[in-house]
Amino acid sequence: MNKANESLNVWANSLPSGSWCSTKDSNIKFEEQKSKITFVNKSKKSCLKVDVDGGVILSNTRSARCDKLLVEKSAPLFCFVELKGGDIEHAIEQLEASLKNPKLNPECSQRKLAFVVGKNHFPASSPLIQKGMKKISSLNARLIVANTPASYSL
């Protein structure tokens, strides 16, 4: 086991019980507020599905946070997911707060993607999304804005 995987296992085991599970499913789905993303995992890589909102960070906590986190374990890739009905600006704020949260960013989280999935989003060239991309990029992650149902291949 390499150092990144060791660090990843220590991190996962430090999360609240029941807030995460391991999976090698070929289609890993997150769905909330009529928004949905499927991570296509054709080679059945080992992944962690983490409930951030209501799991790692309790629902009664006032801090902003994303909904879900998917971690592809082999060369750790952290996929922060915010499933939204429409308020993209708030979604970007939630992702930004999650990317800054030490509970969600162990030392091994070098590769990061931040997904906003919702309905009727602005075009990628909109000033709002461009500003969000810069914010997220400054946190060493790449922002991906997609209409529901979204799909991403691991």
Rank of each mutant, 00 (worst) to 15 (best):
N2Q: 14
A4N: 12
E6D: 11
E6T: 15
S7K: 15
V10H: 14
S14W: 11
L15Q: 01
L15N: 05
P16S: 12
S17A: 07
S17Q: 09
S19D: 09
S19N: 13
W20H: 08
C21S: 15
K24Q: 15
S26E: 15
K29P: 15
K29V: 15
E31N: 12
E32L: 08
Q33L: 13
Q33P: 00
Q33K: 12
K34V: 10
S35K: 08
S35P: 11
I37F: 06
T38Q: 05
F39A: 08
F39Y: 14
V40L: 13
N41D: 04
K42L: 09
K42M: 02
S43V: 09
S43F: 14
K45A: 02
K49H: 09
K49L: 12
K49G: 07
K49V: 09
D51I: 10
D51Y: 00
D51H: 03
G54Q: 02
I57R: 05
I57V: 14
L58H: 04
S59R: 13
N60L: 04
N60K: 03
S63A: 04
A64F: 13
L69M: 09
V71N: 04
E72L: 06
K73A: 13
S74C: 07
P76V: 10
L77M: 09
F78Q: 00
C79T: 00
C79A: 14
F80M: 09
V81I: 15
E82V: 07
K84G: 06
G86S: 15
G86D: 14
Q94A: 03
Q94F: 06
Q94R: 05
L95C: 08
A97R: 12
A97L: 13
S98T: 01
L99E: 08
L99H: 10
L99V: 09
K100M: 13
K100Q: 15
N101W: 08
N101I: 05
N105T: 10
N105P: 09
N105L: 12
P106N: 04
S109L: 12
Q110K: 15
Q110N: 10
K112T: 10
K112D: 07
L113E: 03
L113I: 08
L113F: 13
V116I: 02
V117G: 06
G118R: 01
K119P: 03
K119A: 09
K119F: 13
S125L: 04
P127Q: 05
I129W: 04
I129C: 01
K131R: 10
G132C: 03
M133G: 06
K135R: 14
K135E: 07
I136P: 07
I136K: 01
S137G: 07
S138H: 00
A141W: 03
A141C: 05
I144M: 06
I144V: 12
I144E: 09
V145D: 01
V145P: 01
A150L: 01
S151I: 00
S151N: 02
Y152N: 04
L154M: 00
